[in-house]
Simulated scan of single mutants.
Amino acid sequence: MRLRIFTEPQQGASYETQLAVARAAEDLGFDAFFRSDHYLVMGGGTGEPGPTDSWVTLGALARETSRIRLGTLVTAGTFRLPGPLAIAVAQVDRMSGGRVDIGLGTGWYEAEHTAYGIPFPSLGERFARLEEQLQVVTGLWRTPPGERFSFSGEYYTVADSPALPKPVRPEGPPVIIGGTGARRTPRIAALYADEYNVPFHVPEDTGAAYERVREACREQGRTRPLVYSVAQVVCCGRDEAEVRRRADAIGRDADDMRREGLAGTPGEIVDKIGRFAELGAECVYLQVLDLDDLEHIELIAAEVLAKV
Rank of each mutant, 00 (worst) to 15 (best):
I176T: 10
G178I: 01
T180W: 06
T180C: 10
G181Y: 12
P186A: 09
I188Q: 03
I188K: 01
I188C: 02
L191A: 15
Y192F: 15
Y192N: 09
Y192L: 06
D194R: 05
D194C: 13
Y196S: 02
Y196K: 02
N197T: 10
V198R: 09
P199I: 09
H201T: 06
H201F: 07
V202W: 01
V202A: 06
E204L: 14
E204P: 07
E204G: 07
D205Q: 13
G207I: 07
A209E: 03
Y210C: 01
Y210G: 02
Y210P: 01
E211F: 11
E211V: 12
R212C: 03
R212M: 08
V213W: 00
A216D: 14
C217I: 03
R218F: 07
Q220Y: 13
G221F: 09
R222K: 13
R222H: 11
T223H: 11
R224D: 15
P225T: 11
L226N: 11
L226E: 08
L226G: 10
L226P: 09
V227R: 14
Y228R: 04
V230R: 01
V230C: 08
A231G: 08
V233T: 10
V233F: 06
C235Y: 04
G237Q: 00
R238G: 14
R238L: 13
E240C: 05
A241E: 14
A241W: 04
E242A: 00
V243A: 03
R246Y: 01
A247Y: 05
A249N: 08
G251C: 07
R252P: 00
R252W: 04
R252K: 14
M257C: 05
M257H: 04
R258I: 04
R258M: 07
R259Q: 10
E260F: 14
G261F: 07
G261N: 07
L262N: 06
E268C: 05
E268R: 03
I269C: 06
I269H: 03
V270I: 14
D271L: 04
D271Y: 05
R275I: 06
F276G: 00
F276V: 04
A277K: 15
E278W: 07
G280M: 06
G280W: 03
A281C: 13
C283Q: 15
V284A: 15
L286T: 14
Q287K: 14
Q287V: 13
L289Y: 10
L289T: 08
D290T: 10
L291T: 02
D293I: 11
D293W: 10
D293Y: 11
E295W: 04
E295M: 03
E295N: 11
H296Q: 13
